[in-house]
Amino acid sequence: MTISLERPAVPVVGVTNLVEPYDEQHAVVTVQMVVSRDQLAAAVEDAATKAYGIQDPDELSVEEVRSLAAFSLAWMSALELEQGAQSMAHMAGPDADDVSLQWYIHAVYRAVDRAFPKAG
């Protein structure tokens, strides 16, 4: 993981702001992390479903998918992310408990593949 720190904090569009309105911005911390496809799908699904109520991930733009992923990765714990990734992989597979949700899960994976194409 690479972490960089900018001081003083300069407001940047598109950066998750965790500072309460009564507090003063002190620094912008940039965290880079390596995640799997399943972890990205879990992050996107978490934000799309819980925070935004998105019905069809196929309609999301690349920018929207990346924003949803960043939003969730900023808030989810490592344990939540890993559990979500395992759940997504299971729900997308042939042994899924509820195949009625597979269209949505597969749409999330397609959105992830659009926004984060595999290198190489």
Score class of each variant (00 low, 15 high):
E24Q: 13
Q25H: 12
Q25M: 14
A27M: 06
A27S: 11
A27R: 07
V28E: 02
T30A: 10
V31K: 04
V31T: 13
Q32W: 02
M33D: 13
M33G: 14
V34Q: 02
V34E: 10
S36P: 01
S36Y: 04
S36N: 08
R37H: 03
D38I: 00
Q39T: 03
A41E: 04
A41G: 08
A42H: 09
A42C: 13
A43G: 09
A43Y: 03
V44Y: 04
E45L: 06
E45F: 06
E45M: 06
E45Y: 06
D46P: 00
A47H: 08
A48G: 12
K50D: 15
A51I: 03
A51C: 08
Y52H: 15
G53L: 10
P57A: 13
P57F: 11
E59N: 06
E59Y: 09
L60V: 09
L60Q: 14
V62F: 05
V62G: 04
E64C: 01
E64D: 12
E64W: 01
V65P: 03
V65N: 01
R66V: 08
A69K: 00
A69M: 03
A70V: 01
F71M: 13
L73V: 07
L73I: 07
A74R: 11
W75M: 15
M76A: 14
M76Q: 13
S77Y: 10
L81H: 05
E82Y: 08
Q83K: 01
A85M: 05
S87A: 15
M88P: 09
A89Q: 07
A89P: 00
M91P: 00
M91G: 00
A92K: 05
G93M: 07
A96Y: 02
D97G: 07
D97Y: 04
D98R: 09
S100Q: 09
Q102V: 08
W103G: 12
I105G: 10
I105H: 09
H106W: 13
H106I: 03
A107F: 13
A107L: 10
V108R: 00
V108H: 03
V108P: 05
Y109D: 02
Y109H: 04
Y109G: 01
R110M: 06
A111L: 01
